[in-house]
Structure formats: C-alpha cells, structure tokens
Write a protein that binds this DNA or RNA. Structure first.
Length: 590
DNA sequence: AGACAGACTTGCTTTCACTATA
DNA sequence: TATAGTGAAAGCAAGTCTGTCT
C-alpha cells in the first residue's frame, strides 16, 4: 500500500508544485516522504507559544455582591472566583450539593481573612447582580454593530495567523488549540466528586515549551518566564501545563489536518485492517479458551468476546473518589450484569447495565452462547455486587495477550475494526444504485447510525428538537398542498390541451409537468430529512464518523455512486481526511 | 506485578457564526 | 434588517495505552 501511495503522492506533488497557495494540500501529499524510523516525530519545530486567557476585569462598582442581605465589596481575587459561580447560576450544576461544597471550599481559599470571617455560608450569598450583568453583557455582544463585530473578527483572525500555526519540518501546520484554558469552575461529567472546584489561571510560569533547538524560541509575555523550554522530538506537543484538578498534563497539539495527526490516523486504520485478516483466527482461539481449565484464561476469553461482539471499551481501573464511577469491559462489576437462563423464549440472555465513558449509560440485553453464559455464572459465584466480574483480568493483561496475537493489537482496535467493517457492510446492503442522491445519503446516514448504535454514541436530545421537527412537518404539509395544487393545474392544462390541441397549451402542459416533478422531488427531500432527523434524535453520528470509520470507505462509496464528497464531509472533515480523499478509489475495500 | 506519569485519542456539550426567513 | 434556526467549530473532560520506576 505504501509504495503504491508514495508513487501517487509524488505524481500529484509534481502536479501541484506550481500552485504555491495550495500548501496545505501539498503537505498532505508528501507526508510519506518524511517518516522516521527512530521514534522521532519531527526534526524542526517552531511556534509562538500559547495565547493566554485575558486578565480578570473587575466588576463595575454598580454591580454588587450581597452577603446575608448586606452589600459587601469583595477583594479582586475573591470577586473573580465569585463571578465564575455567578455565571453558572442558571445551570443545574450550581444547585448540586457537591458542586456547591467544592466551590465554596475553593472560593474561601481566595478570600482575605476578613472576608473569610464574614462569608461562612454559601446560602447567604447573593450573586444575582453579577449574573444579571453577564446576561446584559452577552446581550450587548449580540447587539453590537457590524463594524464592531468585524473588528473583533479581524482581531481573532490576526491572533490565529500569529499564534495558530507552527512550522513542523518543512510545512506550516495549523495548531489545534493554541490558547490555554481560562480559569473557571471545573465541570466534571456524571457524578463527579470534584465538580465545582476552582480551575486556576494558567501563567507563563506554568508552561513548558517544546520546540527544536535551531528554531526561534517563543517569547514569554513581557515580565514573565516559561517554566521550561525543552527540545523533545519524541513527542508531538508544542506546549504543556499541569492542570490543578486531577494533576494531569494538558497539551497544545496540532490540528487533525496536520501530517502528524493524519499519519497516525491512517496507521490506526491499517492496524484495524490487519485485524480483519486475522480476526477469524482470534475468534476461534477465544472460543476455544472458554473451555480452558485456567480461570484467568476463561475470563480473558469472555471479556474479549464482549469487546469484539459488543464493542465495549477496554475498561482501565480508575482511582476511587477521584472521578465519576464509570466502567468498561475489564472493570465491569457484578452489579452491572444480570443473567437470565431463560426469558421471553430466549435462552442464555445477558443483561448489561452500567455507566461507561462520560457517564453514558450502556444498556443491552442479548442472548449469548451457552459456554459464555456458563462461564459468566462461574465468575459470579460467591461474589458481592461491588466485586469485579473479571477478578483475574485487567487491561494490561488483556492487551499483553492481544499483542501476542497480532502486532499492534489492543482492545480499542476491535472498536475501530467492527465500526469500519459494519459501515462497509451496511453501505453495501442499504445503497440502491437507482436512488436519488438524497435517498442515498439517507442510506449512508443509516449505515453511520448502525455504527453509532454499536458503539453506544449517544447525545442529549437537542433542546430545540421538538420544535424543529414541527417546523419541518409544517414545511412538508405546505409542500403537499403545493403539490396537490400543481397536480390540479397539470390536470387542467392537460384538459385544455386536449380541447384546443394548440402549441401554447402543449407548452403549458410541459411547464406544469415539470413543476409537479420539481415539487415531488422537494417533498421527497423533506420527508427524507424528517426521517433522518427523527432516527437521529438520541444518537450522535459525529464521534464514529470522526474517530472510527475508515474515511476511505466513505470516499470510495461517494466515488462509486457519484455522490459529491461535500455531502458526506464538511470542510473541516475534508481537511482531516485529505489523505483518504486523495488515496481511495471507488473499489477500495476496507 | 503494580503504581504512576505521560502522551495521545475519543466523546459530549456549549458556543459561534452563517444562512434562510419574516 | 433583525431574528431564529442550524451546522460547524471550540472546548475540555475522560478515556486508552505505553513506558518507567520500585
């Protein structure tokens, strides 16, 4: 694959050489010429460092804070943190006990000793004037004149041009996130024990800069210093800092359109295609292992079966009390699984119910093979609800085993493989060559949806869902009325023509016929749209499209059926998948 | 083997900005 | 010309997995 692609890339490179504007495209086409074998990620790296959050602007004097009904002027530090809470007054978070408790504790740390002595109860704090002020501000922002908006836009564009790009090796690349995260209150997902804690402001002194020795080093803002400047070309990040909630490191990295991200993405799908070649063998083996006399092997084999069949995540252990209580395959507990030897005419039914990544609920009830069922019964023996289902297994053991089965194989490769193979197979099954383009796109979305369901990619139904559905229905009703009017007119025109047989009436018939046809098409399009949207109410297609589906499958499908690629991928997605758009022909097979 | 740090991918929600419409 | 509705983009939290240290 590589050799063939290299040839093609060279050819295209030549074609594009004169076109200097097309730098981005060019850089995509020549990736393959710059791969390193020693684990280094680049030779040259130059950038301007991150953009920092703007400093705190104190509240105008007229905006007051009240404690226990009395006006109280806060110190700048305490006031800033108070505004973080004030901004969230309308959010459900601000009513949660844990959130309030964490916030109050961290807020008090920012107070002067006088403030600390007075402010002892969050319930006696009144932030409403601050809240009103921010609402007014956001209203004012919306009301800004065209010129003011334009000015802001230009300033943003200037910042993007200056800080949003870097030079990596021979190419100018877009940076993904070139700003540090602003201070605020931490919003964990699900039942997070740290929600409401203060996320502190990031200063230049917190930042580690990574760039090449021979590059022009970024300058810290006047009067400040970087924490460190290093030159590590074994990593891809440009800058990093340690965040104070979990103590984890945050990075500034390149945009998905960059060579370094694109190559990695491509590699990911190649690994998944590798799995395709040996998945039969692996399946045979884990089925065999269900009979092993060793408990650890049986557990490993059943877990792998779940990962393969149900597309579960690996499930690393997490530190208790530090994050929301969520699990994946290896960390499933007894309380997450129910076994039904017989239910509704089905035998050996397993019911899984747990909170996965981002505290999204996974619920599934499915029949499994008898051997799996019997094994699960065995694993559950003499255990408490909070005990691990797979007590002899963890992700490290599992991945070590997978590594032995195939080079580069880890648990998540199964998700990539099953997602991509499902898309390919569903597209084959659902696409009718004679369908209109909108109908074909509906088929595509349905194939995409099948994958999203497999991977349990959900979303909260949009707040405007019901209304937007109604709007669409209104449009459909109107279109139907239009159609019936147009049909009547066509009928009348036909009758007229039958009576007179003249040229003019013949033309009218043609015109009316065309009109009916056009309206029919428009109606169909609207109906397809309504179906699509309804089926998508709680399902998020984005994640699978961006992270799990080999883009070459979609590109090939578009080429095969003459669908413009813009209908499937928007501008950003086309940039991210430029490598695939360039590479895949209509006969590409995952 | 297990703990932990680090790097990178994945995932949902919120905000932004554009476009169609009144 | 303002507004509403929408898709795109931004934001950042939360996973996976590797490597190192003990």
């Amino acid at each position: 694959v590589k050799v063939e692609h290299d040839k093609k890339a060279k050819k295209r490179k030549h074609e594009y050489e004169e076109d200097e504007d097309d730098e981005v495209l060019l850089s995509v086409l020549v990736w393959e010429e710059e791969r390193y074998t020693d684990g280094s990620k680049w030779r040259f790296l130059e950038h301007k460092g991150p953009v920092f959050a703007p400093p705190y602007e104190p509240m105008p004097n007229k905006v007051r804070f009240y404690y226990d009904g009395k006006i109280m002027k806060l110190s700048a530090a305490a006031e800033e943190v108070a505004t973080f809470f004030a901004k969230m007054l309308d959010h459900e978070y601000s009513t949660k006990d844990v959130f309030r408790k964490n916030f109050f504790k961290d807020w008090r740390k920012e107070m002067t000793s006088e403030e600390k002595a007075i402010i002892t109860d969050l319930n006696k704090c009144n932030f409403s004037e601050m809240n009103d002020y921010f609402k007014a501000q956001s209203e004012a922002r919306k009301q800004m004149s065209k010129e003011e908006k334009k000015k802001i836009k230009e300033e943003n564009e200037r910042l993007l041009q200056e800080y949003g790009f870097c030079i990596m090796d021979n190419h100018k690349e877009r940076i993904g996130n070139f700003r540090t995260e602003p201070p605020g209150l931490f919003r964990g997902r699900g039942d997070h024990p740290k929600m409401g804690m203060l996320k502190r402001r990031i200063r230049p002194e917190d930042i580690i800069i990574n760039c090449s020795k021979d590059s022009k080093q970024p300058k810290p803002p006047p009067g400040s210093k970087w924490k460190e400047v290093r030159h590590d070309n074994k990593v891809t990040w440009l800058a990093s800092w340690t965040e104070n909630i979990q103590g984890s490191i945050k990075y500034i990295m390149l945009n998905p359109s960059s060579r370094i991200k694109g190559e990695k993405d491509w590699q990911k799908y190649e690994t998944a295609r590798c799995l395709k070649k040996c998945v039969d063998r692996i399946r045979t083996q884990y089925r065999d292992d269900w009979k092993s006399k060793e408990m650890r092997i049986r557990q490993r084999a059943v877990a792998l079966y779940f990962i393969d069949k149900l597309a579960l995540r690996a499930g690393n252990e997490k530190e208790e009390g530090e994050t929301a209580d969520t699990v994946g395959c290896c960390s499933l507990r007894v309380e997450h699984i129910k076994l039904h030897p017989k239910i509704n005419d089905q035998e050996f039914v397993v019911e899984l119910d747990f909170l996965g990544k981002d505290s999204i609920r996974y619920y599934n009830k499915m029949p499994v093979e008898k051997r799996v069922f019997k094994n699960l019964q065995l694993f559950l023996e003499n255990k408490q609800p909070e005990d691990d289902l797979f007590d002899r297994l963890n992700t490290s053991i599992l991945n070590k085993h997978l590594q032995e089965l195939m080079d580069g194989l880890t648990a998540k490769v199964f998700r990539t493989y099953n997602a991509s193979i499902t898309l390919q197979q569903q597209l084959k099954e659902l696409t009718c060559p004679d369908d209109s383009i909108p109908a074909k796109i509906l088929s595509y979305n349905r194939a995409n949806r099948a994958v999203a369901i497999l991977c349990n990619h959900q979303r909260a139904p949009p707040k405007t869902f019901e209304k937007s559905m109604q709007n669409l229905q209104t449009k459909i009703d109107e279109k139907e009325k239009q159609l019936s009017t147009a049909r009547k007119q066509l009928k009348a025109a036909k009758a007229d023509h039958k009576a007179s047989h003249d040229e003019k009436s013949k033309k009218t018939v043609e015109v009316k016929r065309k009109a009916v046809q056009r309206i029919e098409e428009q109606l169909m399009k609207l109906q397809v749209q309504a179906t699509d949207r309804e089926e998508n109410k709680q399902i998020a297609l984005g994640t699978s499209k961006l992270n799990y589906l080999d883009p070459r499958i979609s590109v090939a499908w578009c080429k095969k059926y003459g669908i413009p690629i813009e209908k499937i991928y928007n501008k950003t997605q086309r940039e991210k998948f430029a490598w695939a758009i360039d590479m895949a022909e209509k006969d590409y097979e995952f």
